[in-house]
Simulated scan of single mutants.
Amino acid sequence: LVDGESVDHHGNNVHSKVFDTKGKYSWIKAPRYEGNPMQVGPLANIVVNYAKGNPNVVPVVDEFLKETGLPLNAVFSTLGRTAARCIEAKIVANNALKAFNNLVENLKVDQSTCAPYVIDNSKEYKGRYMGHVPRGTLSHWCRIKNGVIENWQAVVPSTWNASPKDANGIGGSYEQCLIGLKIADVKQPLEIIRKIHSYDPCIACAVHVMDAKGNNLSEYKVNVNL
């Protein structure tokens, strides 16, 4: 790690340690919120809204817990992440017509699809977006200089969940959820797959699997004709 600069969750430039690209590196960034790793996604979204008493969320969660006979703390698990994705879909469906009607009403007074803008090549622009998408929290930062994009930074949901150990040795959500997991057959680590799949990962460009000695564990072929 070397000295560098980053942007905190308030949008301020702060001193940070960044990876030395000439040395070893991880395949995924390690974003932190006030120094802590975060799990994002449907489970986090549902739990936070349930704790806040969101009237659109509480009845659906209570119905799920009643029908399954599970206690609330059971959702902090592989089952909970999978169930939360279904619960979130149910909540979205329940409110889809309301959202559609709101859109129709908005179109009656404003049919523009975006805010008009003009780029002055003599100026520098900075912008950011933070929002929620199906996999979790999505953030983008953009800097425009001399009329072109000078830098673009994206922290996607899987960046949070799949983040590796940071400079303080604290692992991300994937890593922490696997600690202590018992594997019945190391050549077929289905337990690992089941846990990680519950996050709905999107890290196709960052997947590498090997053991501590660098040996290949298995080879897999996909039949594209199926």
Rank of each mutant, 00 (worst) to 15 (best):
S6N: 05
D120A: 02
A154Q: 06
P201A: 02
F76W: 03
V209F: 07
C114A: 14
W141Q: 06
E105G: 05
T159A: 06
A44T: 07
Y174H: 13
C142F: 08
V118S: 09
F19E: 14
L138T: 00
L70I: 07
D200V: 12
V186N: 10
K165L: 07
G11P: 01
N54V: 10
I193L: 13
D110R: 10
A96G: 04
G53M: 08
L1Q: 14
A204F: 09
N45T: 08
T68R: 02
I183G: 11
V92I: 14
N12F: 09
E191F: 07
L138D: 00
V148G: 09
L79F: 12
V224C: 09
P116D: 13
S173M: 10
S158H: 04
L107G: 12
P55S: 05
I144W: 06
Y117M: 14
H10F: 15
K145Y: 06
P31C: 02
H132G: 03
K126H: 12
N223R: 02
V18Y: 10
G35K: 06
L97G: 11
C114G: 14
S16A: 15
D166Y: 09
I144H: 05
K66E: 08
F64P: 03
A84L: 04
E191V: 07
I46T: 05
V155Q: 00
S163R: 06
K22C: 10
N151P: 00
L181G: 09
F19D: 10
T78L: 01
A96H: 05
N106D: 11
V18I: 15
K17A: 08
I193T: 10
I170G: 06
L72S: 06
K213M: 12
E175I: 11
N215P: 08
H132S: 11
N73P: 13
K195Q: 15
P157H: 01
G214P: 06
K108V: 15
L181E: 13
N54R: 04
K195R: 15
N106Y: 08
A96S: 11
L178Y: 10
I192Y: 13
N94C: 00
S173D: 13
N13H: 15
R81N: 07
N223K: 03
S16M: 11
A44R: 03
K123N: 08
N95Q: 08
C202P: 02
V75Y: 00
A93C: 06
S163D: 04
G69W: 02
E105Y: 04
N73C: 10
